[in-house]
Design a protein around this nucleic acid. Sequence first.
RNA 1: GCGCCUGUAGCUCAGUUGGAUAGAGCAACGGACUUCUAAUCCGUAGGUCGCAGGUUCGAAUCCUGCCAGGCGUACCA
Length: 556
Amino acid sequence: MKQKIQTLVLQAARRAYERGALTSDQLPEVEIEEPKIANHGDFSTNMAMVMAAGQKMAPRKIAAALIGHLEDSEGLLAKTEIAGPGFINFFIPPAAWQPVLKAVHSADTRFGASRRGRDRKVQVEFVSANPTGPLHVGHGRGAAVGDTVARILAFCGYDVQKEYYINDSGRQINTLGRSVFLRYRELYAGDPPEAFPEDCYQGAYVRDLARELHDAGRTDLLQCEPDEAVATCARYAADRILSGIREDLEAFGVGFDRWFSEQSLYDSGKVAQAIAAFRESGLIYPKDGALWFKTTDYGDEKDRVVVRNNGLTTYFASDISYHEDKYRRGFERVIDVWGADHHGYVPRMTAAIEASGRRRGQFHVILVQLVNLLRAGQPVAMSTRAGEFVTLRDVIDEVGRDAARFIFLTRHYDSSLDFDLELAKQKTNDNPVYYVQYVHARIASISRKAAENGVGVAPPSDAALARLTAPEEIQLLKDLSRYPEVVDQSAQLLEPHRITYYLMTLAAAFHAYYNRHRVLSEDPMLTQARLYLVLAVQKVIRNGLNLLGVSAPESM
RNA sequence: GCGCCUGUAGCUCAGUUGGAUAGAGCAACGGACUUCUAAUCCGUAGGUCGCAGGUUCGAAUCCUGCCAGGCGUACCA
């Protein structure tokens, strides 16, 4: 609808110029907005004010010229008016809203989809937690955001691939092996627990892994060379932890197209190749016994080390190679979802990517702010150092996957998020998940009842549709017509919370309608029209929840 | 010190890329179930958009400077 109004205004402006009512053919972009106040119409535009300078005319005079040249062949406008300093307000007649229902029903699961992406290849990389411990709540938020962004982009016509980068090389894996082996010694060689070093992983799962390894038949580690024993522990532990992560993500409804191993970049020589290539172009240079990347050439505040003076590469080195590999695989756009505590890493990564000849717009980092875990308003004590934290699995088990996912998506990722476990479990109005799901279930119930009563769901006639004139009905129709725009915007801005908020708004509009009007009435024509309306609402709720990875239940 | 993020109703947060009179939910108060699911709805009240300047027809939104909180500032990962 908004687009149609936009087209009308644009055509009016052209016509006005041709007929001499405007002085310049330089037209600004037509912005149509939805006023907050009902008196200002269903839509309005500030175009006349924006044009004032270019046309050298008073805004209200321009507005009059535009209105004078509007040609409303479809009957979309009940009234137009000039208001305030030069706004044009548009009032849409009820009948103009009704066609959206047919659009919803015929597009069905595809309603709201677009061709914005034009099949361009995009990669979304997210979670990518080190396989050194179970996923915590913060990873859960990243998983929900990454997965949902991927779903939205796919819905908007992008060719999307979801990837998890496994940091399976380097020191932290070695530390993991060492941690497990020390617990192993503690259990089977009688080492005192006090001797466990602080830089090792403290969680109880480390001891479990040691025991598991022993029970699996590796009773011989005390006899091995320590290095070998540590390596065995590391391999075993990382493997086990990674499959645990996989299972947890699956339980969370998150799947990946590819699990990419950091180690594989070293094994295939790609890290060395990347470094060699940049040395040749002078972007990597030696200083103080180390190799540095000239990220300052691309806006970073200082150059960064890629190979330390002890010969070991930094993470940055493999990340350069990894991102180069992504683009070589044909992705036009690469989206990384990181915890906000890594924001200091963005300029150097961006620099490396630009240095490789990619455009700035081809790389996007979504920085997800932290999650405060609460229980009934009180912070849940979490100490990573002591290894005591609530895992993502704990949360899924306690509050359920739907509630967890939805709540993670109720905030813009730029804001930190309070996640209250008690609230997430509550089946009340406080909990937005059920509020939205309830709409779907209620309509399913109406649908069942209609079938019992032998009411068909055939598309109503235009005459029947014309019966949908109650304010609550118009509100629903308006909300439904907004959906494609909301999806598109959320794809463009990579902001999943827009879908969440939309669904809450649509749900509110439906509940209000439901409380005031009966769908199944004595009047067959009206019943048919209303049924058609609420079934459309149900479809959009289902589509939206689907984008969020949340189920749409038939009953609750 | 420097950099990034945040600051909007008592609480938790939206705010259509600069629009008109500031928007929800929760909490408070008052109402609505013989009905297609009350996991719901209707109403009342609640504001110096952190502070101060600036840009312009117009600012919660853009610029500058402060204030407060979080995070980051490694040849760590």
